[in-house]
Design a protein around this nucleic acid. Structure first.
Length: 878
RNA sequence: GCCGAGAUGGCGGAAUCGGUAGACGCAGCGGAUUCAAAAUCCGCCGUAGAAAUACGUGAGGGUUCGAGUCCCUCUCUCGGCACCA
C-alpha cells in the first residue's frame, strides 16, 4: 500500500482485475436467492451526464450490497438505441444514424466501465440490432393476428414546409423547429395497440405492487382514469335523416342543466356545419392550427362557434344548440360533451364568454347560486341535491344518476358506462431510425403480417437523412416486395415503431440475449421470478415507460410466452420493486438565432455573474464573451444541451470520488440541482480514509477484536464499538430498506471522526481499530468499490472483499447502562437528565421533578401533567 | 389547464412512527504546521442578544402537552401530459 491515495492507479488495476476474473458475470444458480438489479438503459446520446451517474451508481450500490448479503446478482446494461436524436445528428453532421449511434455506444460504454459498475456486459443489448428487434416484430405479428394491434386515423403535427410529421418536442410555440412554419393537425392512418383492453387489469394490479412508490401508483391510476358515468344520446334530425349525438358524462345528475352541447372540430356535425357556413368552416380551420400536445390544447383560450344545428334533450325534449369547441378532443370518448355551465367550471367560463344560459340544477344547503362568478361548491357532488329538475328534485348525486340512467335506458337513449381516460397506444412513426413495422400492404389481401421466416425486416443502415419525410418511403429497394399470401407485388409498410416499444421488454431479453430461436427462454423464468427485484430510473418515466412495460409483459404472457415456465414464474408484472430517482437538473442557456431558432449552450461553456445572494443575474459565453439568455432549470437533456459530462470529474478525482459525491449529495428520490461544490469534500474523505488505514496497518498487522476473548474494553473503546455496531445496522437499513445513501455515508464519516478521537494505541485498542476499519471497507465497498477493495486487501491480505459478507452486528455491544432524557417544561426544552437504562417511570418522574432545570422553570407552580416518552424525553405541563 | 412531487442556515442536506431542529459535508472565519504556499490537523460557524433568553423549517391559519412532520388555504419550483427518452 502506497502512502498516497492515487485513485487512477488503483481504479484501473481493480477494473482490469474484475474484467479478468469476470467478477460481474451472472450465471443462473438455484443454490442461492437471485437478485435482478435493473437500471433504466440509456439513450446513447453521446456522453453520460450526471443523471446517468446517479442512476447507475444507485443500481451498483444495491447490486454490490446484495452480493455482500449472499444473493446471486444480475446487473445488466444495454442501449435504447433507436430514436430521434440520431436522425437530428444525421441531418446536422451528415453521418448515418447507425454510425453515430454505434460510436456513442462505444464511448459511453467506456465511461460506464471507467465508473466501475459491476455490469455483466455479456448480456448487453442494443435495440437497433436486428437480433433484438426481430422478436419485437415477431410479437407484433402475433398481436396483429389477435386483433390487439389495429389501424385507425390518428392526429399528428404536420409541418407544411418540410412536408413532414413532427414530434411534440419539435413544435415550439406552434411552429416547426427547423422550418419555422405554422404547424397544423393532420389525420393519418396509424397502428394502435389496444392498451385500453388491459385498462382494468393495469389499474387493479397497481394494488399488488407494494414495492412501488405510492406517488407513481397514484399517477398511473389517474392516468388510466377509470370513471363511471352515463353515455347517452341527443336525438336530432338533419336533412330529414334521424340520428343521435352521443356524449359521456360523470355528472348525469346535472343533465337537466344542459344548455348546449360542444363537439370537436373533427366531429361529423362540425364538418356538416362547416360545409354550409363559411364562418364555421373558418373556425374549424383555425382549430386545425397548432400542435397536438395536450398541454398546449389545455392552456389554450377556450373558443367556440354555434352551428345552428339543434339536438333534442333526451329527457326534457327541449332543443339544445350544438357548438364547435376548440377544447373538445376527437380522440377522446365520442368527441362531444354536454355542457352544464352551472356545475362545470369550464362550461361556466364558456357560457359567460358567449352569453349562454346558465341553469342551476343542484343546490347545496347554506349556499346561494349566482351567475356572477364561479364558486367551488357549484361542482360539489357530495353535498348537493337536485333542484329545478322536475321529478328528480330532492335526489342526491347517487340517487339522481341512478334514476336518470334508468330513464335514459328505458328510452334506449343511454346507459351506465365505465370509461377510461387512457387511450390506445399509437405506435406508428413516420421516421427512419426505428424498428420497421412488419406489415405488407397488398391490394388484394389488405394488411398482411410478415411471416416468421421472413423476419426480421431489416432496417437499412447506410441511409442519408435530410429531415424531409422518411427516407424509407423513398427507397423502392426497401418497400417493394411481394404479398406473402397471394404472391403479387405489394408494398412494405415504411413507418417504424415508437421507441417505447423497444424499452417495454429489454429487461426480459437481458436474461436470454443470445437466444436466436425464441424471444424468451427459461432463464427469464429464473431471473424474473417474483418480478425484477429492483428497478431504478428517473421519475420522468413514472407513467409512459412504466405503464407500457407493464402492458407488454401482459401481452407476452397472453401470447403464451411464459406458458412453459414453472408455475409461479409466469409473469404478470415485470417490476417488483421500483425506485424512482429525482431528476438531476441544471440551468439552461440559449441564444435566439436570426431564423428564430434557439441555440442551446452548455453550462460548462458559460460564465455567470451573480448578485450578492449568489443568484445569477447575467451570463456570457466564454468563447466570445457575449451575453447569453438564462433559461429555466431543467432536467439534463440532449435537446437543451444542459447535460454535465462526468468525465472531467473522473479524470481529476477518480470514479470513487464521483460515485461517493453523487450519492452523498442528496437522497435518490429527490431532484438535485447540479453543482460540483462539495466534490473536494468527497475526495478529502477518501484521502483521509486511505491515510487512516495506512497509518494503522504500517505499524504492523493485528487481528480484529473478538468480544469475550480479547478482554474488557475501556469506556471510550466500548462507546466507540457501540457506535461501530450501530453504524453497521443503520447502514444495512439505509442500503436495504430505506435506499438512502447520503445518511449511510454520513454515518461512516461520523464513525471515522470518532475513530480519529480515540487516543489509545495499546494492542486491545488496535484490535478494535482493526475491527472498525475492516467493517468500514466493507460498508463503503458498494459505493466506492475500488478503494474499498484496496483497503480491505491491506487490512486482510489474501482475503477478497466480495467473499467477506456483510459484517454482523454485535448486539451485546449496543447495550447502554445509562441513557439521556430531554427535559421539557410546557413543551420547551429546559435541560436533560441521565438515568439508568433500567429506570422505571416513577423513578424518572421523581428525578425529573427534582432536577434543578425543572425547579427553576416551575417557579413553585404545581405540575398539571407529566408526559414520559420512554428513551426520549419528559415533558412537564403546568 | 390537469396529474404527481418538493420548499429546512450562505450552500447540499439530517431529523426513519408527532418527541433534543440544523447530524454529515461544502463554503467561510480563527489557529497550528511551513521560509512560503499547497496539503494536512485543531477550533468556531441559524438570527437577535453581553447574558439570561427570545425567535426560527416557503406564507397564513388550525389540531396537540409537544408540529419540519398531521389538517385547511395560498405562493413558488421541479417532473409528466400520450411523437424527447
Amino acid at each position: 500500500m502506497l502512502e498516497k491515495y492515487q485513485p487512477a492507479d488503483i481504479e484501473l488495476a481493480a477494473q482490469q482485475r474484475w474484467q479478468k476474473t469476470a467478477a460481474a458475470r451472472a450465471v443462473e444458480d438455484t443454490s442461492c436467492p437471485k437478485y435482478y438489479c435493473l437500471s433504466m438503459f440509456p439513450y446513447p446520446s453521446g456522453k453520460l451526464h450526471m443523471g446517468h451517474v446517479r442512476n447507475y451508481t444507485i443500481g451498483d450500490v444495491l447490486a454490490r450490497f446484495h452480493t455482500l448479503q449472499g444473493y446471486n446478482v444480475l446487473q445488466p446494461m444495454g442501449w435504447d438505441a433507436f430514436g430521434m436524436p440520431a436522425e437530428n445528428a444525421a441531418i446536422q453532421n451528415k453521418v448515418p444514424p447507425a454510425q453515430w449511434t454505434y460510436a456513442n455506444i462505444e464511448y459511453m460504454k467506456g465511461q460506464l466501465q471507467r465508473l466501475g459498475f459491476a455490469i455483466d456486459w455479456e448480456r448487453e443489448v442494443a435495440t437497433c440490432k436486428p437480433d433484438y428487434y426481430r422478436w419485437e416484430q415477431w410479437l407484433f405479428t402475433r398481436l396483429f393476428e389477435k386483433g390487439l394491434i389495429y389501424k385507425k386515423l390518428g392526429t399528428v403535427n404536420w409541418d407544411p414546409i418540410d412536408q413532414t410529421v413532427l414530434a411534440n418536442e419539435q413544435v415550439i410555440d406552434g411552429r416547426g423547429w427547423r422550418s419555422g412554419a405554422l404547424i397544423e393537425k393532420r389525420e393519418i392512418p396509424m397502428y394502435y395497440m389496444k392498451i385500453t383492453a388491459y385498462a382494468d387489469e393495469l389499474l387493479a394490479a397497481l394494488d399488488d405492487l407494494p414495492g412501488w412508490p405510492e406517488q407513481v401508483r397514484l399517477m398511473q391510476k389517474n392516468w388510466i382514469g377509470k370513471s363511471t358515468g352515463v353515455r347517452f344520446a341527443f336525438p336530432y334530425e338533419l336533412d330529414g335523416k334521424a340520428d343521435q349525438l352521443w356524449v359521456f358524462t360523470t355528472r348525469a345528475d346535472t343533465i337537466m342543466g344542459v344548455t348546449f352541447v360542444a363537439v370537436a372540430a373533427e366531429h361529423p356535425l362540425a364538418t356538416y356545419a362547416a360545409a354550409k357556413n363559411p364562418e364555421i368552416a373558418a373556425f374549424v380551420e383555425e382549430c386545425k392550427k397548432g400542435g397536438v400536445a395536450e398541454a398546449d390544447i389545455a392552456t389554450m383560450e377556450k373558443k367556440g362557434v354555434p352551428t345552428g344545428i339543434f339536438v333534442t334533450h333526451p329527457l326534457t325534449g327541449e332543443q339544445v344548440e350544438v357548438w364547435v369547441g376548440n377544447y373538445v378532443l376527437m380522440g377522446y370518448g365520442d368527441g362531444a360533451v354536454m355542457a352544464v355551465p352551472a356545475h362545470d367550471e369550464r362550461d361556466f367560463a364558456f357560457a359567460k364568454k358567449y352569453r349562454l344560459a346558465i341553469k342551476p340544477v343542484v343546490a347545496v344547503a347554506g349556499h346561494e347560486f349566482s351567475t356572477d362568478a364561479w364558486q367551488e361548491w357549484y361542482a360539489d357532488k357530495a353535498n348537493g341535491v337536485c333542484v329545478n329538475s322536475g321529478k328528480y328534485d330532492g335526489l342526491d348525486y347517487a340517487a339522481a344518476v341512478y334514476a336518470i340512467a334508468a330513464d335514459l335506458a328505458a328510452k334506449e337513449l343511454g346507459e351506465k358506462k365505465v370509461q377510461f381516460r387512457l387511450r390506445d397506444w399509437g405506435i406508428s412513426r413516420q421516421r427512419y431510425w426505428g424498428c420497421p413495422i412488419p406489415i405488407i400492404h397488398c391490394d388484394c389481401c389488405g394488411d398482411v403480417p410478415v411471416p416468421d421466416a421472413q423476419l426480421p425486416v431489416v432496417l437499412p443502415e447506410n441511409v442519408v437523412v435530410d429531415g424531409a419525410g422518411s427516407p424509407l418511403a423513398r427507397m423502392p429497394e426497401f418497400y417493394e416486395t411481394t404479398c406473402p399470401k397471394c404472391g403479387k407485388p405489394a408494398k412494405r409498410e415504411t413507418d417504424t415503431m415508437d421507441t417505447f416499444v423497444e424499452s417495454s421488454w429489454y429487461f426480459l431479453r437481458y436474461c436470454c440475449a443470445d437466444n436466436d430461436q425464441a424471444m424468451v427462454d427459461e432463464r427469464v423464468a429464473y431471473w424474473c421470478q417474483g418480478g425484477i427485484d429492483q428497478y431504478i430510473g428517473g421519475i420522468e418515466h413514472a407513467i409512459l415507460h412504466l405503464l407500457y412495460s407493464r402492458f407488454w409483459t401482459k401481452l407476452m404472457r397472453d401470447v403464451g410466452l411464459f406458458d412453459n415456465f414453472p408455475a409461479g414464474a409466469r409473469l404478470d408484472e415485470p417490476f417488483a420493486n421500483l425506485l424512482t430517482q429525482g431528476m438531476v437538473v441544471a440551468p439552461t442557456y440559449y441564444r435566439d438565432e436570426a431564423d428564430g431558432k434557439k441555440l442551446w449552450l452548455n453550462p460548462a461553456d458559460v460564465d455567470l455573474e451573480c448578485d450578492a445572494r449568489g443568484r445569477p443575474v447575467a451570463a456570457t459565453l466564454r468563447a466570445d464573451g457575449q451575453p447569453v439568455v438564462i433559461g429555466g432549470i431543467e432536467k439534463m437533456s440532449k435537446s437543451k444541451n444542459n447535460g454535465v459530462d462526468p468525465q472531467a470529474l473522473i479524470d481529476q478525482y477518480g470514479a470513487d470520488t464521483a460515485r461517493l459525491f453523487i450519492m452523498f449529495a442528496s437522497p435518490p428520490d429527490q431532484s438535485l440541482e447540479w453543482s460540483d461544490a462539495g466534490v473536494d469534500g468527497a475526495f478529502r474523505f477518501l484521502k483521509r480514509l486511505w491515510k487512516i488505514v495506512y497509518d494503522h496497518s504500517s505499524v504492523g498487522s493485528v487481528a480484529a477484536y473478538v468480544p469475550g476473548q480479547d478482554g474488557e474494553l475501556s469506556p471510550a473503546l466500548k462507546a466507540f464499538r457501540r457506535q461501530l455496531h450501530l453504524a453497521i445496522g443503520k447502514i444495512a437499513d439505509d442500503y436495504g430498506r430505506r435506499k438512502q445513501f447520503n445518511t449511510a455515508i454520513a454515518a461512516v464519516m461520523e464513525l471515522l471522526n470518532a475513530y480519529g478521537k480515540l487516543a489509545d494505541s495499546e494492542p486491545l485498542a488496535r484490535a478494535v481499530r482493526q475491527e472498525a476499519l475492516e467493517a468500514v471497507a466493507v460498508l463503503l465497498w458498494p459505493i466506492v468499490p475500488h478503494i474499498g477493495e484496496e483497503l480491505y486487501a491491506t487490512l486482510k491480505p489474501g482475503c477478497a472483499i466480495s467473499d467477506a459478507g456483510w459484517p454482523k452486528v454485535d448486539e451485546a455491544a449496543l447495550k447502554q447502562d445509562e441513557i439521556e432524557l430531554m427535559l421539557q417544561v410546557n413543551g420547551k426544552l429546559r435541560g436533560s437528565l441521565r438515568v439508568p437504562a433500567s429506570a422505571d417511570r416513577a423513578a424518572i418522574e421523581a428525578q425529573a421533578l427534582a432536577s434543578e432545570a425543572v425547579q427553576k422553570h416551575l417557579a413553585g407552580q404545581a405540575p398539571k401533567k407529566l408526559i414520559v416518552v420512554p428513551g426520549r424525553l419528559v415533558n412537564i405541563v403546568v
